[in-house]
Design a protein around this nucleic acid. Sequence first.
RNA 1: GCCGAAGUGGCGGAAUUGGUAGACGCGCACGACUCAAAAUCGUGUUCCUUCGGGAGUGUGGGUUCGAUUCCCACCUUCGGUACCA
Length: 908
Amino acid sequence: MAEYKFADIEKKWQQYWREKDIYKTQTDKDKLKYYILDMFPYPSGTGLHVGHPLGYIATDIVARYKRLKGFNVLHPMGFDSFGLPAEQYAIKTGRHPADTTRENIERFKEQLCVLGFSYDWSREVRTSDPEYYKWTQWIFLKLFNSYYDKKENKARPIEELEIPPDLTDKEKESYLVSHRLAYQDDIMVNWCPALGTVLANEEVIGGVSERGGFLVVRKSMKQWMLRITAYADRLIDDLEDLDWPDSIKLSQKNWVGRSTGAEVDFRVKDSNDRIRVFTTRQDTLFGVTYMVLAPEHPLVSKITTHEHRQKVDEYVSRAGQKSDLERTDLDKSKTGEFTGTYAINPVNGQEIPIWISDYVLISYGTGAIMAVPGGDQRDFEFAKKFNIDIVEVISPDGNPSETLEQAYPGEGIMLNSGEYNGLDSRRFKQVIIERLEKEGTGKASINYKLRDWVFTRQRYWGEPIPVIHTEDGKVVSVPEKDLPVVLPDVDSFTGTKEGESPLAKVDSWVNTINPVDGKPAKRETNTMPQWAGSCWYYLRYLDNNNTTEFAAKYKTDYWLPVDLYIGGAEHAVLHLLYARFWHKVLHDLGYIQQKEPFKKLINQGMIQGRSNFVYRIKGTSKYVSYNLKNEHEVDAIHVDINLVKDDILDIRSFKKSRTENQEEVEFILEDGKYICGYEIEKMSKSLLNVVTPDAIIEKYGADTFRLYEMFLGPLEQSKPWNTNGIDGVFKFLRKFWNLFHSENGVFEVSDDKPTANEFKITHKTIRKVQEDIERASFNTAVSAFMICVNELTAQKCHKREILEPLVIALSPFAPHMAEELWEKLGHTSSVTGAAYPSYNEEYMREDTHEYPISINGKLRAKMTFALDMPNADIEKQVLANEVIRKWTEGKTPKKIIIVPRRIVNIVV
RNA sequence: GCCGAAGUGGCGGAAUUGGUAGACGCGCACGACUCAAAAUCGUGUUCCUUCGGGAGUGUGGGUUCGAUUCCCACCUUCGGUACCA
């Protein structure tokens, strides 16, 4: 029996690849390129767990396969190394984030190398490296110094912006600010006093911080914003040509949230004020029975009558104190106050009351709505509660309903709408806009859910924003030659109580001079969010040592777009939307030819953890086994899965791990064992369910690990981690190995001519594997190899002409073993330089086919016919068949369906 | 609530264009080797069965000669989203 010494083999070839620079990529214009990208990891302190490599293995297989197919492949890797965890760790321990980040990266790299990935490490990027974030800052300045030209529908340098004449200096400045793609504004943010920073929405869960669970409040603060809303239409429309999962495209569309409708002006009674509303249902204008302003709407205090002022003021201040969570709680009933004032409905002149309520959001549309209780469920509930009229203006058939139990939000036929009664509501939508436009009370309009991007964090461990605040209150760019603005060393990583970044405490860094006039000035102390670095890393890989440009034009021209991008679905919206936005800005400014960065996108599923639980009886140190826990009041506690095997707890180790007094710890067992409960959850250190690849690689090797993660199921599907089937994959590799070795372990491959059957097996496999890689179906590719090896083993085939092509075909999946066998076959250069074997249809051709013969769709017999046999002959033979005759019982069949190469079906 | 994905043996999963459901692997059972065990190899393995056959891809209907695949309604699980006018 030949021994498959994976540990030696893998070490040997990893060293070979490193020493010979096998995976170094050149920009070679004469070759077809293929750019394959992984979402780069955040280098956390826990290292790589088994979920990380799933996508990386898939891309590595494709990268190796494409090389064999003759492509010039770019397959780089880097680290998203700015971010909150490193900073939190620094606050706790005082260790500098730069140090811990570097250590974590080293560990990640080591783990990635052990898995045998074919990255070109000479192109590695780290977002926290000053040579990298110099260009992140440079791009920020491009945004700062550009505006969006709505006519040409693209970004242009701010110098080209036509500024209205006769503006004062101050007006000119604010005109510029209102056009720049990066600008400052006062907005409501999630402020977490305990962490001393603003948090992104996704970092706030249920009103408290995701990390630590500290209270988060809403606070108005001056922040940098990026004008992503200027790109709303293009971000939707350009999705069309992308080869992305439909679900991701849809999420992005929904996130941008384009809705078409109309803006309508309602005159305030006895006043010159107008309230502008946005509606998608201008066809329900005749059903408007009241209006609602958001509590923050600027007109609220102006129009509120003396009589109602106190109650309205109270409502406004109460609404301001509510957390987002309270305001968006859908279960609560509607609240609101009447302002005492009325508006005039522009289509029928009716007077309608103006209310305020927090179900109208200041941040969407115009912050005011026309309320149509007959057509909108929210308005309906509000009207019911405050006894406001409900008018039905659309019904499915144009007849009024007897009772109105709820709003009818659908399309239909108009009623109670004056001269428009009987019109189809879809048609009326158009008609009414024409009338509003003619009368000057409204116009067609498009609204977006997408907001401008809040681009500042009050943190240390991020890119400094490269601008300078002058004495006279202006903001100027740091000159390009002075980039990067490097993070200063600090003693303390916490921000100030007032909500300033830790950088604000570093006077020597903050105080600088205005590059324009040399007067004293101050640096911006906020830093960029973690998304910034990942917005453009795929560009830097192309030219990571360039000191004069973010990447040379001829390199971006050649390599872009990314041909295949694989990563987790959790980045469906934010990262992918932000990166597309930056890409389009760079495209508009002429730096990049292509309008989209990522041509094909695949989301790999999440590998979940299987957590184990023990059950402690409340207030005691007694632990009760899973099936007895219902007899007690218990707390379920996560237990480290390393102390559990097959859901049975290792009681002794568990006892040692507890902090309680060990004498007091007791167990209530069943059948002498302590059975743990389990749950499938996210794999995470805090849930004690993390599995690292290390132990598995030690036991089975990296090739087995790679193959097993692929064999687990479809790449896109999420699945809990288990190692139940890993033996099967390991056995397969050993059998493959054995095909090249005699029974006593000596390498032995013959030059005998293969049989037709051996050719057929091999060529079928080569074709199947190729097709499966092309459609990212890696699990079925692995099983195709298994079938092939099983058959060749049964044939005792040890022939070079069969085995050599299979080594090449397997090399993307199990590169170490492939290299070893390739060398043993007598080759002196790496298998990565081989060509993917072509398959010959001739070998697979079949002259006959075994047809399933079914009667009324039920399989009854099988018969083999020549493929060129006429249908009439097949029919005759089928009907003559004994089994078939038994089933037809002499009856004449109504119909016989013969599908060549498929099936014969007899209908009786 | 809305949007999306998915429900197939004991388990992970396969069936690519509507054409033999359960490939491949795990597990399990039996056998070989062994003093024995492990490892390895071989055979079997959807369920029910009166051994003729019958049922079967979440449930109920439909289209079709034929449905895991297409259509309608519903149930369950997972993910996203949250009063978006």
